[in-house]
């Protein structure tokens, strides 16, 4: 077993043990952090590995959340169907966005994804009678069941979040060490060279956007199911900025970075919450500080200083 695999399995084991050891407050936080970390890991596939900076991932998160939420609300779908459906909805949206947005690069790609996401947010508001975009809607407790388990129960919720987190973490571990992952890094580092090594750059980027959007969508669907609320605020611009912030903080292009960054920023905000409730202030200040002083993020720093093997 490689050191990286030991590290990732070790993290999962620690999180599992924490389920039974943590006090209720942190127990609840950690469940939320794990789902948000899945969102960040999805973002990291595109930003950290393929090198494409999206400012519109909230649309994928929201597509997953609403794909799940609307089918449950209006058609009484069970979670076992609604969760994959939400993920698929996000994948389909990601495919559409990718085909258009990948005609651009760099700053234009950032603006295009921002605009599409904003349009998505406005669409949710426009269909307010269906989406209840303004105030959001609650997934009834009776619908929040998966494989006979009540997902609103704190322990079940924590373990369900852990399962999703573990699957995505290990999948990212595999992806990064695979041929595909190496090609994505190659495209990030030097697109022209990658093309002239015979790699279809466009197809790989397309795949990266769809994969990244699907994982973000899965996180959105899971978030709605586990915490019971669906709303347009999850499609707003700040919610596109959060995964960027988490990934920058934890270390773009590291498997474990998104989790570290999410946990770090979550508790930083929590801490600042005792001083001010203007929580985006912390996010904004952190973004500036990270671009200035710590481009590589926490785990990027660890990799550069001590652990060159970190994937």
């Amino acid at each position: 077993m490689s050191r990286a695999l030991v590290l990732h399995l070790g993290l999962i084991a620690v999180l599992f043990a924490a389920a039974f050891l943590l006090p209720a407050y942190h127990h609840g936080n950690l469940a939320r952090i794990m789902v948000l970390a899945v969102y960040a890991m999805g973002y990291n596939i595109l930003f950290g590995y393929a090198g494409l900076l999206s400012l519109g991932h909230a649309m994928f998160f929201a597509a997953g959340m609403y794909g799940m939420g609307l089918t449950v609300r209006y058609w009484d779908w069970p979670m076992i169907l609604a969760l994959p459906f939400g993920t698929l909805a996000a994948a389909a949206l990601a495919l559409l966005v990718a085909v258009l947005a990948l005609r651009t690069a760099g700053v234009a790609f950032m603006i295009v994804t921002l605009m599409f996401s904003q349009a998505g947010f406005l669409v949710i508001l426009y269909f307010n009678p269906i989406t209840r975009g303004d105030e959001g809607f609650v997934i009834p407790q009776a619908a929040r069941r998966l494989a006979g388990l009540d997902l609103s129960d704190p322990m079940n919720r924590y373990l369900a979040a852990l399962v999703l987190f573990s699957v995505v973490l290990l999948a990212c571990h595999r992806l990064v060490l695979s041929r595909l992952g190496r090609v994505l890094v190659a495209i990030r580092e030097n697109e022209e060279r990658a093309r002239l090594l015979g790699y279809d750059v466009w197809a790989h980027k397309l795949g990266a956007v769809v994969l990244s959007g699907s994982v973000a969508g899965a996180a959105g669907a899971a978030y709605g199911a586990l915490f019971g609320s669906v709303g347009a605020s999850f499609a707003e611009v700040p919610f596109s900025i959060l995964p960027l912030l988490y990934v920058l903080a934890g270390g773009a292009g590291t498997v474990i970075g998104p989790f570290v960054g999410t946990a770090f920023m979550f508790y930083l905000r929590d801490l600042a919450g005792t001083v001010t409730d203007a929580h985006m202030l912390v996010a904004g200040a952190a973004l500036i500080a990270l671009t200035l002083f710590a481009r590589r993020g926490l785990m990027g720093l660890v990799r550069a200083r001590w652990a060159g093997w970190l994937p």
Binding site: A186, E189, N190, E192, R193, L196, L197, G198, V201
Partner: peptide, 22 residues
């Protein structure tokens, strides 16, 4: 380009183009 490369061409750049970070 990538299809031609896959058919068996290889091209080395005049101005060195490698993956410097790797």
């Amino acid at each position: 380009a990538h299809r031609r490369i896959r058919m068996g061409m290889a091209y080395t750049f005049q101005i060195t183009s490698i993956f410097a970070e790797l």
